[in-house]
Design a protein around this nucleic acid. Structure first.
Length: 327
DNA sequence: TCTCCTCGAGATCT
DNA sequence: CTCGAGGAGA
């Protein structure tokens, strides 16, 4: 029986759990595919690197032949488009002699056994493998560790967490990347470096785990405001921000809210997290993204309007007027 | 005012 | 997954 919830989201029964661990024995996995969507695209290469006692001790790697399609104009057989060949270096002629997924699946599942699977954005690889194995009524149940999840926690200051970026961060050689076997090796090096970072940044694995268990990672707005300080010692008292208390609502177009607050502080103003009798200005950002907001006005805006009617010294500013205040 | 919850957006994989 | 919004309720 199909219900409406299942139709919107793919549920993979018996799929393993995402772990935060640094085991000594595991398998690194990586696949190459014809695209990003497991329901339309196909696997063209699978690699796995078996690690025992933190040392690579075996490799599984094979190309996989996907469905062929015929080019109408040239009447020739294709497996991958030029974008994928460009990206991975895997060509149609290489795939023409490759085995099918069904032919390699048992060797693959024997190789990985019940090892923990480690990969970069490993859900991508797991989902493709899971769906293909399911066609033979095999459940891929292995638990897994995602290096992208670890790197976002351990290196939040990085501009992005692509495998390539992490590799260059640690000077890991990436020649021949975007082939599955090479990407396994890169991921292995990345995982080792992330492991060292845990101790460097948290002292113990337990401390790191504790930081992950805290569900709410970002500090509250009021907590953020408490920690805002300025180097300035002298202020232009004629600036409209001086001595005034600002509150922000919605998402600002031009800068993150934190930066806007810093500008206010630097001009001798103050910031608050909610509308009070002391609030002088409410700056309106964009609320379009927020599905729960009622009749276009945030709770802060309604309260500010109420206070203004009561005669408090409060004005509601658009984002652009706020920027005019700054100079 | 504070904690917890929900939701959208963006990131990442090929 | 993670972040950053607002909302509900204590």
């Amino acid at each position: 029986m199909l219900n409406i919830f299942e139709s919107t989201k793919t549920i993979r029964e018996h799929k393993g759990k995402s772990l935060i661990e640094f085991p000594h024995d595991f398998c690194i996995i990586d696949i190459e595919t014809t695209g990003l969507d497991p329901s339309f695209d196909e696997i063209i290469e699978i690699s796995a690197l078996k690690i025992r006692d933190n040392i690579p001790c075996g490799t599984f790697s094979t190309l996989v032949q996907p469905c062929e399609y015929i080019d109408d104009e040239t009447d020739s057989i294709f497996y991958v488009d030029s974008y994928i060949t460009e990206l991975t270096g895997i060509t149609n002629s290489m795939l023409s002699t490759a085995p099918l997924f069904k032919d390699v699946q048992s060797t693959f599942i024997d190789f990985i056994g019940d090892d923990i699977l480690v990969g970069h954005n490993v859900n991508f690889d797991i989902n493709f493998l899971y769906d293909n194995l399911l066609k033979s009524n095999i459940f891929l149940k292995n638990d897994f560790i995602d290096t992208i999840r670890l790197s976002r926690r351990l290196l939040p200051e990085l501009p992005n967490h692509k495998l390539q970026s992490l590799a260059s961060f640690w000077n890991i050689d990436t020649t021949g990347s975007h082939r599955a076997e090479k990407d396994c090796l890169i991921t292995y090096e990345v995982f080792k470096n992330l492991n060292s970072l845990v101790i460097e940044k948290f002292g113990t694995y337990e401390a790191f785990l504790e930081s992950i268990k805290r569900k709410y990672t970002s500090i509250s707005e009021s907590e953020l405001i408490k920690h805002l300080t300025t180097d300035k010692v002298e202020f232009d008292e004629s600036n409209p921000c001086f001595g005034k208390e600002f509150v922000f609502t919605g998402k600002l177009e031009r800068m993150p809210r934190k930066e806007a607050m810093q500008l206010v502080i630097d001009l001798g103003g103050k910031c608050g997290s909610s509308i009070t009798k002391n609030t002088n200005y409410l700056v309106l950002g964009n609320n379009d993204y927020c599905g729960t907001i009622k009749n276009g006005k945030s709770r802060k805006q309604k309260k500010a309007e109420e206070y203004k009617l009561k005669g408090y010294d409060i004005e509601i500013l658009s984002e652009n007027v706020f920027y005019d205040f700054l100079d």
